[in-house]
């Protein structure tokens, strides 16, 4: 009888212990899950902060480059044209005459300077860029470069145009602008071909120049290669990819891929 009672006690205590164990296990699992959730949240916050920092840095760099570009454009183009107009006016003053041809030349120079200024304003305005599609913005930039006579740029668009979010469009356009600037400054090219292709999930932009070419690996390592590094980093910022294909003497191709959303 005592044995049977002991067995019952043992069984009851065992059941209690098992139930207690299951309860504690449940609580431990909740603790574990909660800790994991906390860790993941912290990591996400860190990633978000890093991304925002990079985005801010990128925006500041773009701003700085934009100021450089304005300065250069005003100095090289508008400044030159206005200087010519000033010289022409000086000649008129010295001769004390007003020649019809000279006056029309001065008018032409001032009108050219105004056009240049208008073009610069258009290419810099992010509001205007948001109103236009990416191929339209690139086409305007190409028109501006072609008008300057430095390069002959042609463009082609393939596929059905799809909507690209504004911030992606702006950064993509600045990447293309930086690509053009690099060609003008360093490539020594005479022709540039731009291809914009709308694929299923990506928009693919390719810029080929027939310039001197270079070794991308070496250039990316150098400090002078900052412009190229910026292009690559900006592409990753908007969830895209950028690739520079070049060999000395064989020209350069810059390929940019951006996802639609």
């Amino acid at each position: 009888m005592q044995d049977t009672r002991d067995q019952v006690v043992f069984t009851i205590v065992a059941v209690i212990i098992i139930l207690l164990f299951l309860g504690v296990l449940f609580l431990v699992m909740l603790f574990y899950y909660n800790n994991k959730k906390g860790q993941m949240t912290k990591e996400q916050q860190l990633m978000k902060a890093t991304f925002e920092k990079q985005l801010l840095e990128s925006k500041l760099e773009i701003q700085e480059q934009t100021f450089d570009m304005i300065s250069q454009e005003i100095h090289d183009n508008v400044g030159q044209i206005l200087s010519l107009a000033k010289v022409q006016l000086g000649i008129m003053e010295q001769r004390h005459i007003i020649e019809g041809d000279l006056v029309s030349n001065v008018k032409e120079s001032i009108s050219l300077a105004m056009t240049e200024l208008r073009d610069i304003a258009k290419s810099l305005s992010s509001e205007r860029l948001q109103l236009l599609s990416l191929p339209e913005s690139i086409a305007q930039e190409i028109k501006r470069i072609n008008r300057s006579g430095i390069l002959k740029v042609t463009a082609s668009v393939e596929g059905v145009e799809k909507n690209v979010p504004d911030h992606q469009k702006l950064i993509a356009f600045r990447m293309v602008q930086e690509g053009f600037q690099n060609i003008i400054k360093h490539a020594g090219a005479s022709e540039v071909k731009v291809s914009i292709r709308y694929l299923e999930e990506w928009i693919h932009i390719s810029i080929f120049d027939n310039g001197t070419g270079f070794n991308p690996e070496n250039e990316l390592k150098k400090r002078e290669g900052l412009g190229l590094q910026n292009i690559l980093r900006r592409a990753s910022l908007i969830g895209g990819k950028a690739n520079i294909i070049s060999k000395p003497g064989e020209g350069t191709t810059l390929e940019i891929q951006i996802a639609y959303a």
């Binding site: 139930l19 207690l20 309860g23």
Partner: peptide
Amino acid sequence: SVNLLFGLITLVV
């Protein structure tokens, strides 16, 4: 937590 553990133990006892 204490409610859960109390429930599990007293359910048997």
